[in-house]
Amino acid sequence: MQKLFQAKVYVSLKKGLADPQGSTIKEALESLGYRNLSEVRFGKYIEVKLRAKTKKGAEQKLKEMCGKLLVNPIIEEYSYHIEEEG
């Protein structure tokens, strides 16, 4: 019996890589008066709904998608959150 899972994938540039978008946004925030910002990183957020028998299976599929398409491992890293749809 397949269940429906909702996955949220957060993609960002790898730590240590220059993040021009992030630093430009940080400067803009500072010029709007927001001080004490230590860092702004820009990223992408992707939602995927998928069917699988188990959560583990869904996770495995999701990791595969990240490796194949969603994430460019040369410059990006990702984290995700996955749960069964109620």
């Binding site: 220059a18 993040d19 021009p20 430009t24 410059i75």
Partner: peptide, 10 residues
């Protein structure tokens, strides 16, 4: 080496 990221705006 770590990939260089271009910042054309800068």
């Amino acid at each position: 080496p770590a990939v260089q990221i271009g910042d054309p705006f800068k």
